[in-house]
Design a protein around this nucleic acid. Structure first.
Lengths: 137, 137
DNA sequence: TCTGAACATGAGAATCAGTATCAACTAGCG
DNA sequence: CGCTAGTTGATACTGATTCTCATGTTCAGA
């Protein structure tokens, strides 16, 4: 549906100024950024990239696993360049600082639990939030 | 700051036709429903309740723990009458069916991991998705 | 290097969930 | 009954994300 335009890329991924800019701005940022944050950041650097392109690029990077996507409580999505290995996040509710954590235990538990209920093609997300040491001071 | 109206309820929770309707429609539904779904459902039953009221009631029920809130991938929130004990969800990506699962292991892991990083006042959410047995057929 | 067709871009419109506004309404106490 | 704080709802608004589509680019092949 909605074939309109936006055409169906047959599978070639081209390198453009915009994609490079988005990708490196995200890398420089380090932490989680919303699409708008990123757009503003690019603008501040003099890189003019349309917001629509930022969203498209981000979606593309996310689909290849180059960035992590987190859906915040307020419904806004935030992105971050991330190690590609499977992991979870520990997020500070105060300052937003994030740490990556891994948990073989959880992976196993999730899979086992899902199978016990007859589910297949299992995926899971785990988010742990708290107040980090710095913010506690 | 937005004191305008919407006043600050001093703590009394009144019983109204609308609140009862929302609450019972949610109970009848069984599964997860978005605010809009619920609104449509009520309309179908001839219960005229404003969408704003549905949102308000849902938020209120969520804050008292009477319903569970889930933020779907597309950013829409879905609600469901739920056991108040802490648990997680196993959701079918195909039909939306959900099962509640508990995992002492995960609870412990999350807490331990958070503390190891110096985080306090820890909370966590775990979502497991997959394709349920019925949809696999 | 030149070409062209597939891809990509962007400005702005469109969507859509959820929130704010505020006058009118009502539950429930006395 | 009468009063008043709590509620409601039509509607405007916000803010994120997607769609539209004419125009600009990339890059493989000649």
């Amino acid at each position: 549906m909605t074939d309109g335009h936006e055409s169906a890329p047959t599978g070639v991924r081209r390198t453009t100024r915009q994609r490079t800019a988005v990708s490196s701005a995200l890398a420089e940022a380090g932490g989680f950024l919303s699409a708008r944050d990123l757009h503003d950041r690019l603008a501040a650097q003099g890189e003019r990239v349309g917001i629509a392109t930022v969203y498209r690029t981000l979606a593309s990077l996310a689909s290849t696993g180059e960035v992590d996507v987190l859906l915040r409580d307020d419904g806004e999505s935030v992105y971050r360049r991330c190690s590609s290995a499977h992991h979870h996040h520990l997020v500070c509710r105060e300052c937003g600082r994030t740490e990556e954590v891994t948990g073989p235990t959880v992976e196993a538990w999730a899979t086992a639990e899902a199978e016990r209920h007859g589910f297949r093609d299992v995926r899971h997300t785990v988010e742990i939030t708290g107040i980090c040491a710095t913010c506690t001071l």
